[in-house]
Amino acid sequence: MITVQNVHKWFGDLHVLKGVSLQVNKGDALVVIGPSGSGKSTLLRCINLLVQPDEGDVIIDGVKVNDPRIRPEWVRQQVGMVFQSFNLFTHLNALENVMIGLRKVKRMDRAGAEQMARFELERVGLADKADAYPAQLSGGQQQRVAIARALALNPKAVLFDEPTSALDPEFIREVLDVMTKLAEEGMTMVVVTHEMGFAHNVADRVLFMADGVVVEEGTPDEVFDRPQKERTQAFVGKILG
């Protein structure tokens, strides 16, 4: 479903991704871990072309998407994204946040878009918050609306960039529950997170990144319980406390 081949990215002189490759099969969840600044966010952004890779290929559902002939807007409809700080549109209420992509990008009529948006809010358990503005919602509720907004466009895969690390502890559970349900329903996901419980239960594969390279990859058991590389052992030891 998603293949990343030998991707490099420079920001000026800073070599952020140094030949990253990965593969996510349809319906699988890949969890990416790694220290701050190792290039995890940049990697996700390369997949939906918010960042243009300098070298290498990103292939989604058999289509090489980092190609001048492919519109990045089209790619971003195929691959949804959920941000660390939610990034809900502050001037729109929850329902409008979910609707706007359907209306403006998918060009649906108002009634159809509204019906679908309400359905998506229902799926994340927020049917009763349709009229609330982002500032009136808790962090956990905002992030669930953000997930509904991404899902409304019916993407083939969803990227999550540390979706719970800006949340107060009491709101983490509700967001992880929504994500777990999504994985069980067969959504293809790439999740940057350090929630070990989630990674253990949900991930099909775990990938450890450091300094812009993939250090180690394997099943959750392999990476967390029997890491082969020294750097992985040190990092996993730290996050497992």
Partner: peptide
């Protein structure tokens, strides 16, 4: 900028 990025991430064109 995060608002702009979120809008791009749902497939909006720059004009949108």
């Amino acid at each position: 900028q995060s608002q702009v990025e979120a809008a791009k991430s749902i497939g909006m064109r720059p004009v949108q």
